[in-house]
Computed example of a mutant assay.
Amino acid sequence: MTPPIRPGRDEDAEGFIALIGACWSEYPGCVLDVDGEVPELRALATHFRAAGGALWAAGEGGRVVGMAATRPMHQDRAWEVCKVYVAKEARGSGLAHALLGAVEGHARAAGAERLVLWTDTRFDAAHRFYEKRGFVRQGSIRILDDLSNSLEFRYAKPLAGLQVEALDAAAAASAERQLTRLLVDCVADGGGPAWLPPLAPAVAQDHWRGISSGVALGKAVLLVAWLEGEVAGAVHLRLDLPENRPHVAELRTLMVAPPARRRGVGRALMRRAEQAARGMGRRILVLDARAGGAAEALVRAAGWTALGTIPGFELGADHAPHDTAFFWKALVP
């Protein structure tokens, strides 16, 4: 059962300090110096209230087993996620998801368009949790002048509406878990661009690792769509084409999560892919799509020119041959 969540109070100070201290003690070298480095823990509710934010605590019988906070950043309509901690015995209960859900709901109601957080590079479990919630790494590592010699990753994600972003190499690597699940779900739904169901997660993850490497080497561009804070689709551009085609890019692995279809995600991904290719000096895009399917309809609606169809070029989920249509589009500089 998930412990109850309530607004945090200044009177929770000892509980907050004990919880953070216990969590930090799981990692060698992490030192909690309350009065020297984080004196706001003595009156945390007042601290976040003064910043225009909010604080939550979870637990029963006076013991705090979970906490989370948020505050506006006053730039780019972003809010910062702060001090998310869950006691070891409460992990796996859904409490961390409930706490972050409270943060996201509060920030969204306040008009936030993006969430940002910083997390110590040693907190591997936290990284996996944030990545599961749709966050990706962004920007440089932050160096803190503290007793713990802390280095921190910056994570972020779009929160409101439909947003498509190009990921750098670090962000692409941190998105692999979410994109693996997306690809497995799309293949299971019959919409996989090159695989037959059931697709093993390890195979899907290897695919995205290859894309992340391509992004790092300048051989690929990865675009990911978020819909109301959830990863809803992806597409990538292959740039490493033969030497005599430096002006061409291939659009590949266009996917939209089954629950997010017919909500403009595919169109947004196609549009941003064309913008990205144009910005890199590519003048021609090519792709292939299952003939007669939703992808072909999307491509035609986006103004692509049909080259032709190869009968029985690919197998469907039923292992029967299906036709594949090939398209191209000229990009105006």
Rank of each mutant, 00 (worst) to 15 (best):
A295L: 12
Y27C: 10
V164A: 02
A204G: 12
W79A: 08
A306D: 12
A175I: 06
G8H: 05
S174M: 07
A188T: 05
E40P: 10
L41Q: 04
A78K: 05
A78D: 09
A234M: 15
R108G: 08
D168P: 02
P28V: 01
A102N: 13
G264D: 01
A170T: 13
T324P: 09
P259R: 04
A170W: 13
G101R: 03
E80V: 09
A172M: 00
H127W: 08
L144T: 13
G293S: 04
V224M: 08
G161A: 06
V231D: 04
C82T: 12
V81P: 04
R300I: 12
R282M: 02
A107E: 09
S150A: 11
A18G: 02
E296L: 02
F313L: 14
T180Q: 08
D120S: 12
D146C: 08
A90H: 01
M255D: 09
L55C: 13
P197A: 01
G66Q: 00
G52F: 08
M270G: 08
L115W: 03
G92W: 04
K88S: 15
A13Y: 00
A202D: 14
E296D: 01
L117M: 13
P242A: 06
R71F: 13
A54Q: 11
E230V: 15
M1K: 13
E243N: 13
A57I: 02
G134I: 08
V265N: 03
A170F: 11
